[in-house]
């Protein structure tokens, strides 16, 4: 239970972990961290830590699922049993089933699936520690893993959650802010295309707050997008172009 006098936002406008309202947690991105997959990425946003890996395009199993005009995209979002305060039972919870679906749909919005008919592209997101914002960090990681796997996309995806806590709109909620806050709105965008690829709201917001929240999210998304591009450049900076 919440302690009576716990205050998540100070009068000076500082959050419980010392951040300002529009400040992301420290973001760390690494690409190509799991050798056996075709593409992988690790994203750390504060204490939220997520791996993503991609296999494919590859043969479809079972075969009857194959589509003649495009690849199918499989996605599994999963949390390790020890990623949360109270041990999560093994297997997929209803929450994980829903999040697998919305993450997959976000990725499908940007991947050129029609380039790989009759194949499947499998995306695995594994949350190893959850401290708020796992679906958005997972989606960011998944889009980078797809990039490393060399799968063509219309844009990278950058994702973040905004929320309302003690009446204030905050960027990138940590777990305690999410738990005791009034609203949590995960958003993912393809920034170059000015398009939203994932949008959910859990909580109560007025129309004005929603609009302001979207602006705040865009600020965070642009910062994450820059970091993603930097990470990709870093990964490939030693590679010289092929000489003709």
């Amino acid at each position: 239970m919440r302690e009576q006098n716990l205050k998540l936002v100070s009068e000076e406008g500082i959050r419980i972990d010392g951040r300002r309202f529009d400040e992301l947690r420290p973001l760390k991105i690494e690409i190509g961290v799991l050798d056996k997959s075709d593409g992988s990425a690790y994203v750390e946003l504060g204490k939220t830590k997520v791996f993503a890996a991609v296999f494919g395009p590859k043969e479809v199993h079972p075969k009857h699922l194959a589509l003649p005009d495009r690849a199918i995209l499989n996605c599994r979002y999963h949390m390790t049993s020890f990623s949360v305060d109270e041990r999560k039972p093994l297997g997929m919870t209803r929450r994980e089933i829903e999040l697998s679906k919305v993450i997959r749909e976000a990725l499908e919005s940007v991947v050129f699936l029609e380039e790989f008919p009759r194949t499947s592209i499998d995306v695995y997101v594994e949350v190893i520690q959850a401290d708020g914002g796992t679906r958005t960090a997972g989606l960011t990681a998944a889009s980078l893993a797809l990039a490393e796997a060399g799968i063509p996309m219309a844009d990278l995806i950058a994702a973040v959650a905004v929320g309302k806590v003690e009446g204030h709109l905050l960027l990138d909620l940590c777990d305690i802010e999410d738990k005791y806050g009034e609203a949590d709105m995960p958003i993912a965008m393809a920034p170059r295309l000015n398009s939203i690829v994932l949008l959910q709201l859990n909580g109560r917001l007025t129309k004005e707050e929603l609009k302001k929240g979207l602006e705040l999210a865009k600020k965070g998304i642009n910062e994450i997008y820059q970091k993603e591009r930097e990470a990709l450049r870093r990964k490939y900076s030693g590679v010289s172009p092929v000489e003709v």
Binding site: K101, E105, S195, L199
Partner: peptide, 23 residues
Amino acid sequence: NNIVSIQKNSPGLMPENLLEQMI
């Protein structure tokens, strides 16, 4: 007139400027 839930439940690119009209 508070917004209490949102779910984008399909793949696809949603033009950002449509959201306000839809609300």
